[in-house]
C-alpha cells in the first residue's frame, strides 16, 4: 500500500496579534489514525496554532491542507490574508470537529439537541438518523442517561463528554482538542481522558493541545513541543520524553516535575 494522503498538512504558518508574533513558521503533517499531542507552556502559541487549522484564527501566511485539499486564501489589504471561499471553509470545518477548553455547549439546548444540531443543519442528515447517531455517541461517552439535561445542570466533566459526543456526531476526519481538561476539577479530568483514550484506540486522527503528560506519553503517536511560536521538539513520545534534544523541553519537563 502506498503512502495515503495525510489528513492534515500545515506549511509554514505565521500568526501575529498586533506586534506580538505568536507563530513563527509552524509546519505539521498528521496522517490518518495519528494522535499528535501539542505541548508547550502558556503563550507558546499551541492553542493559536490549533485554531489556525480550522480558521478560528486567520494566519498571516501559511498553508493548510485537509485530506489534500488546500484551504484557499487570498491577500487582503497589505499583509493579511482571508479565505477566498467561505463555503469551502465551512465544508472543511465540518470535517474537523473541535473540542474546547470551556466546552462551549449551546446553553439553551439539551445535551441531545447539542449533539444533533450540526449534523441536522450542516450535514443535512435526516432527523431520525441524527438522533440514532446521537444516541450512539452519547452512549460512547457515557452521557446517554443525561441526554435531556441542559449544560448548566451538568458537571464540567459531563459537559466536556457531551461536547466530545457533539464533535463525534459530525463523523469528523480529524478531531482538534484545545486543552480539553484544563478547565476541569482534578477529579473530573480522568473521565474525559478515558473517553479520549478510547477514541485514540479506535484509530481516530486527533490533534491534542494538552498539559496532560501521561496522556501525551502513552497515547500519542507523535509529540510536538512548542516554545515562543516555534517547534522546539518533535518526534515519537519515547524519543522525545527519554532523549529530548531541546534544552527548553527539558526545562519544561522539570518545571512540571517540580
Amino acid at each position: 500500500m502506498g503512502e495515503s494522503t495525510p489528513a492534515i498538512v500545515v506549511e509554514d504558518l505565521y500568526k501575529r496579534f498586533g506586534a506580538l508574533e505568536v507563530l513563527k513558521g509552524i509546519s505539521l503533517r498528521a496522517h490518518e489514525h495519528e494522535v499528535i499531542s501539542i505541548l508547550g507552556s502558556s503563550g507558546s502559541g499551541k492553542s493559536t496554532f490549533l485554531r489556525c487549522i480550522n480558521l478560528l484564527e486567520t494566519p498571516e501566511s501559511g498553508k493548510v491542507y485537509v485530506q489534500g485539499e488546500l484551504i484557499r486564501m487570498r491577500p487582503k489589504r497589505g499583509d493579511r490574508i482571508v479565505p477566498e471561499d467561505l463555503k469551502q471553509v465551512e465544508r472543511i470545518r465540518s470535517k474537523l470537529a473541535m473540542v474546547f477548553q470551556q466546552f462551549n455547549l449551546w446553553a439553551h439546548m439539551t445535551v441531545m439537541e447539542n449533539v444533533i444540531e450540526a449534523p441536522l443543519r450542516v450535514l443535512k442528515v435526516p432527523k431520525a438518523e441524527a438522533l440514532e447517531r446521537g444516541e450512539q455517541m452519547l452512549q460512547k461517552v457515557g452521557m446517554y442517561d443525561r441526554r435531556d439535561y441542559y449544560p448548566a445542570h451538568l458537571s464540567g466533566g459531563q459537559q466536556q463528554r457531551a461536547a466530545i459526543a457533539r464533535a463525534l456526531a459530525m463523523e469528523p476526519q480529524v478531531m482538534l482538542f484545545d486543552e480539553p481538561t484544563s478547565a476541569l476539577d482534578p477529579e473530573l479530568v480522568g473521565e474525559v481522558l478515558k473517553v479520549m483514550r478510547g477514541l485514540a484506540e479506535e484509530g481516530r486522527t486527533m490533534l491534542v493541545v494538552t498539559h496532560e503528560m501521561d496522556f501525551a506519553r502513552e497515547v500519542s503517536s507523535q509529540v510536538m513541543f512548542m516554545h515562543e511560536g516555534l517547534v522546539e521538539e518533535y518526534g515519537i513520545p519515547s524519543e522525545v520524553f527519554e532523549r529530548p534534544k531541546s534544552e527548553r523541553f527539558r526545562q519544561f519537563m522539570s518545571g512540571l516535575l517540580r
Partner: peptide, 17 residues
C-alpha cells in the same frame, strides 16, 4: 457567550445559521 459562537463556527455553520 463567545464560545457558543465559536463552537457553531467550528462545526461549519454559516453566519446565517
Amino acid at each position: 457567550p463567545y464560545g457558543e459562537i465559536e463552537a457553531a463556527t467550528a462545526c461549519g455553520m454559516s453566519r446565517a445559521q
